[in-house]
Nucleic acid binder design. Sequence first.
RNA 1: GCGAGCGUAGCCAAGAGGUUAAGGCAGUGGUUUGUGGUACCACCAUUCGUGGGUUCGAGUCCCAUCGUUCGCCCCA
Length: 430
Amino acid sequence: MGLIQASRGTRDILPDEVSYWQSVEAIARDLLNRAAYREIRTPIFEETALFERGIGEATDVVGKEMYTFADRGDRSITLRPEGTAGVVRAYIQHNLHAQGGVQRLWYTGAMFRYERPQAGRQRQFHQLGVEVLGSADPRADAEVIGLAADILNTVGIRDWSLSLNSVGTLGDRQQYREALVAYFQPYLQDLDPDSQDRLHRNPLRILDSKDPKTQRIAQDAPSILDYLSEPSTAHFNRVQELLQRLGIAYQLNPCLVRGLDYYTHTAFEFQLDTLGAQSTVCGGGRYDGLVRELGGPETPAVGWAIGLERLAILIQQQGASMAPTVDIYCAARGAEAEAQALQVVQTLRQAKLAVEVDLSGSAFGKQMKRADRSGAVLCLIFGEEEAQQQTVQMKWLTSGEQIVQRQSELFDQISELREKILLSKPTKKI
RNA sequence: GCGAGCGUAGCCAAGAGGUUAAGGCAGUGGUUUGUGGUACCACCAUUCGUGGGUUCGAGUCCCAUCGUUCGCCCCA
């Protein structure tokens, strides 16, 4: 068929699935609000230079994954590949730092990277992220990590593992980098081609190569943790101490190197092995140099981003059902009865009950069948007789019990009704 | 960007060169014209992602293309 389909690497989120997204967003919003984070919404595209400068020209994200094009004014525009750069740009542009103190921000939205799609990876995907700007305190690191853990736990994902590392300051990293190059140089011929290529471009990345031979060589490579300066070590130790106090389990992983240049000090990833090759569901860290790099004042910062598609995969794997169901189904037959039904339903909805109306006009048998499938616990039936007497048949689908009720009396009993509906509902998981 | 697999209805699928393309779920109608969940019956793909080729004959073989899945690179 010559039908137009969604572009490669993009997909529609159909109504059945949207409920997952809404629950995740609701949970995150609630948790973040209570932690004094405020939502920020930044544009979906930015000047290309923002990402080149912010993320780093040598990174893969910038080097080969950006959706970049010239607009009609011949400006180079890029669809945002991640959220932090835009948030920091907005922070600087609107002088949010002038408000003093710490800015706690969160965002969610679509991100774009030009990559081969595979499980848990798309060209348009969605992230939810937080950024804490203006605090160098290790408590900020612990706070954001704790929030990520809370969100994952609350949406029903519990078997994550947290990898933790410190990449120190730029200075620490410079020294470490030299040591690494010196270490790997003699083995150059034994490294896999990718790693050979990375030796001078980005030696830290050799550490998490998947090539077995390279891994063996990397095992005895110097550890970043031995190259941290005093203050860097102190910061990292304090972060670990705080995580322990919060009861958050983690593994130290000196090979954890994040792909974007702006990270300093703490780096972390929440992973699950059920995600296939894309095991990371949340990644983040501290980025003390980025704000100044982008032209703002020296501002320490820390944050993370959760991949929402990956989160959705995990939630579905755990079998959590989020299908919304209606409380009440309304069956009606005959013009007058149908009109009365609509009036009653409107009032019920105003009283915060979820009601679905059958529009088929077909036999009551058919309508009841649909009532059953809708998941409603109560079916309201309006026929000719009821219409004449201004009554309604209330049939409880869970018990089969059925009573006649005057329509006018129905509204006096809304709170009892709501209670009874809640009681008859099978308990829903998140 | 590289390598491999897959593409038959809304969904899951059988089909492996030969007259009418299994089956299941969902859906629609009926048995039951004012009462659901069960059961039974009927209907539901002129066509196998798309385009071209081979052949007397193609869902089945070949090529291309698009999509998708898995892996690599990288990342959320």
